[in-house]
């Protein structure tokens, strides 16, 4: 596998959906290509960072307005 091949299979590899034979080929390429190894590592970290991020608290007032709207439209006590 060459650099272009690694790029084509990158998502499938990082998502764990690549066939074992292709994983083997890809890893063999990474052993001798520093650029591809860095791209694979940093893309994996990009995904991990977004996956692991907890949502921030809602900006001020949004929850109150949401509850008011729901209470009004659904005719429930607020």
């Amino acid at each position: 596998m060459n650099c272009k091949g690694v790029l084509n299979e990158l998502s499938e590899y990082l998502d764990g959906n690549l066939e074992p034979a292709l994983i083997e080929e890809l890893r063999r390429h990474l052993e001798c290509c520093d650029d591809c190894r860095v791209v694979v590592d940093t893309t994996r970290k990009t995904i991990e960072i977004y996956c692991n991020t907890e949502p921030m608290p809602l900006p001020q007032g949004i929850r109150e307005r949401l509850e008011r709207t729901l209470a009004k439209k659904l005719k429930r006590p607020s």
Binding site: P55, M56, L58, I62, R63, E67, L70, L74, R76, P77
Partner: peptide, 18 residues
Amino acid sequence: NGEAFTTLVNQYDRNIYR
């Protein structure tokens, strides 16, 4: 039961807003 729905809303509103 509106209170039950509000509990569900409060559980997920941050995620849905995101």
